[in-house]
Amino acid sequence: MALRVHLTLPELALRYLRKDPHHLDPEERKVLETFKERAPISRDAADIEEAEATFGDRLADRVAAVGGSWGFIISFGVILFGWMLLNSDILAHWNRAFDPYPYIFLNLMLSMLAAIQAPVIMMSQNRQGDRDRVAASHDYEVNLRAELEIMRLHEKVDLLLARIEKQEMGG
Rank of each mutant, 00 (worst) to 15 (best):
G68D: 11
M84S: 03
D44Y: 04
S69K: 11
E37I: 08
I73R: 15
G77C: 05
D61E: 15
A53W: 00
D47K: 12
T54Y: 00
S75P: 01
K36F: 04
F55Q: 13
A51P: 00
L59F: 08
D47R: 11
R43S: 09
L85A: 09
L85W: 04
A51G: 03
W70Y: 14
I79C: 03
I41T: 01
I48H: 01
A39T: 08
E52A: 15
G67R: 01
I74Y: 14
G71H: 12
G77D: 04
F81V: 10
F72K: 10
R62I: 11
V63A: 06
L59S: 01
D57Q: 06
W83Y: 03
G67V: 02
W70A: 07
A45Y: 03
G68T: 06
F81A: 13
G68C: 08
A45I: 02
V63R: 01
D61V: 06
A53K: 03
A65N: 10
F76M: 09
F55H: 11
W70N: 10
S42D: 15
E52D: 09
F76Q: 11
I79R: 07
D61W: 01
K36T: 08
W83I: 02
E52I: 04
L80V: 14
V66L: 10
A53V: 01
G68E: 06
R43L: 15
D61R: 08
I74H: 07
R58G: 04
L80W: 03
D61T: 04
D57S: 11
A45T: 05
I48N: 00
M84A: 13
D61H: 04
E49R: 13
R43I: 09
S75M: 11
E52R: 14
I79V: 11
